[in-house]
């Protein structure tokens, strides 16, 4: 869709499996922004996010042979690596110690900055507008599950909804996102 694909996924994977430097360059150019966005949202600290992005790419490079394209897209696989490393970091003891030193005020300023997306990827602005139309509760749900790695039980507790309803609610949120993205395509299709 709107990602900056410079090369078909299969070819990227085969370059990576051959440990070809061009594979790394393509990987970094295409995916570092999205992965960095995910990591930053979880750890909310520039220094940690830089380290974690580095760890993520090293892990992708080392473990590319474990990636199985029949089980999902390369991005889903990489996103899981980035997310798990970031969640581990946030839950680790040294992270909790250091984040306690940040004052409330600093935290708020950081978050406001983050909301303004000062670092945002220029290429993703059009897409951002589409995603901004998502209902706040759907956006929050996607962020909890997709970014923060909440389990269904944790979502159920957070929202006070029965466990059985969580799956339906998540499906609705993803469905709404999909509808908005295909709305973008309809605009294009209307011209013909």
């Amino acid at each position: 869709m709107a990602r900056r694909i410079s090369i078909a996924e299969e070819e990227l994977v085969s370059l990576l499996k051959n440990k070809d430097q061009r594979g790394f360059n393509v990987l970094y150019n295409n995916y570092s922004g999205a992965l960095f966005g995910v990591i930053n949202k979880i750890v909310q600290s520039d220094d940690d996010a830089n380290d974690l992005l580095q760890d993520t790419f090293l892990k992708i490079w080392r473990n590319i042979d474990n990636y199985d394209s029949s089980k999902g897209s390369i991005f889903t696989w990489m996103m899981n690596i980035a997310r798990n490393l970031s969640i581990d970091k946030v839950r680790s003891a040294d992270f909790r110690d250091s984040s306690q030193n940040i004052s409330m005020e600093q935290n708020v300023i950081y978050q406001v900055d983050n909301e303004h997306q000062t670092l945002m990827d220029v290429d993703s602005i059009g897409l951002r507008k589409v995603v901004d139309n998502l209902k706040p509760e759907y956006r929050q749900l996607i962020e909890l599950v997709y970014y923060q790695g909440y389990t269904q039980a944790e979502v159920s507790e957070e929202y006070g909804i029965p466990l059985g309803t969580v799956k339906t609610r998540i499906k609705a949120a993803v469905g709404s996102l999909r509808a908005m993205l295909s709305g973008l395509w309809l605009v294009v299709a209307f011209l013909f």
Binding site: M1, G33, L35, D46
Partner: peptide, 24 residues
């Protein structure tokens, strides 16, 4: 589903600091 979530992640992309690619 993967494409929709991927688009979500790309909508929230942030450019990493310059020089990080060479460092990695």
């Amino acid at each position: 589903i993967e494409d929709a979530l991927e688009s979500y992640a790309f909508a929230n992309a942030q450019t990493p600091p310059a020089g990080l690619e060479d460092k990695i």
